[in-house]
Nucleic acid binder design. Structure first.
Lengths: 101, 101
DNA sequence: TTGACATGCAACCTTGAGGTTGCTTATTGT
DNA sequence: ACAATAAGCAACCTCAAGGTTGCATGTCAA
């Protein structure tokens, strides 16, 4: 599954945001307070793991999930050619990405 | 449908790229050479129209489609908080977006 | 006006994403 | 040892996204 599809789901975007703001977290922590089952959250996390946005490792009986934003560069690559149309200031992003293929 | 979902499909990403590179185009032009029906392409274009990424108007018996990249800013808004993790040079993007809510 | 062209409309099919339930396994603390 | 806790596994359900076919509509050109 591509990064684009991974990020298309609002639940997964929120999971990424939580990991970014609060750092690594266990499955139970990430599932708490959500209007869905723990199993559903597991599936979302597995999607994120498969496309490299989340790294998971077991610590005792817990499974710790950690954010890896690197694959989001693919999103930036896609975005860059359009960015110039909004605002010239964003040309810096485009320039950067062209210089780092 | 959200911009995230709109951009999740590779066919739609390609349609956007074609419109960006070659400018406005008719349905037939956009459907030519694709491994799917004209009707399928119509559906994809309608998705893009509904979320504001494409503007369509009729000219004679043709329907001309034009790119409007503005809604892609939502993607950049999402991306910005993660961008800092890659490279400090991308902080400019983040700064810009924070200054333009 | 009449045929060819560009598109619209509507019904239909198939598949996988997102979710659930129920049960099993592994680890921890007392 | 054993009960509670954290997670994994597998089967199942539902629905909409992506695609198709067939026909209708509107427009141009000779």
């Amino acid at each position: 599954m591509s990064v684009f599809e991974a990020v298309a789901d609002p639940v997964r975007r929120d999971l990424l945001a939580v990991l970014r703001e609060y750092g690594p977290a266990s499955l139970n922590t990430l599932a708490e307070g959500r209007p869905m089952t723990r199993q559903a959250v597991t599936k979302h996390l597995n999607v994120l793991v498969k496309c490299g946005l989340v790294r998971a490792h077991r610590r005792g009986r817990e499974r710790i999930h950690e954010l890896d934003p690197e694959p989001l560069k693919e999103l930036a690559d896609f975005l860059a050619p359009y960015a110039a149309a909004w605002d010239d200031r964003l040309d810096r992003l485009q320039t950067y990405l062209e210089e780092n293929p």
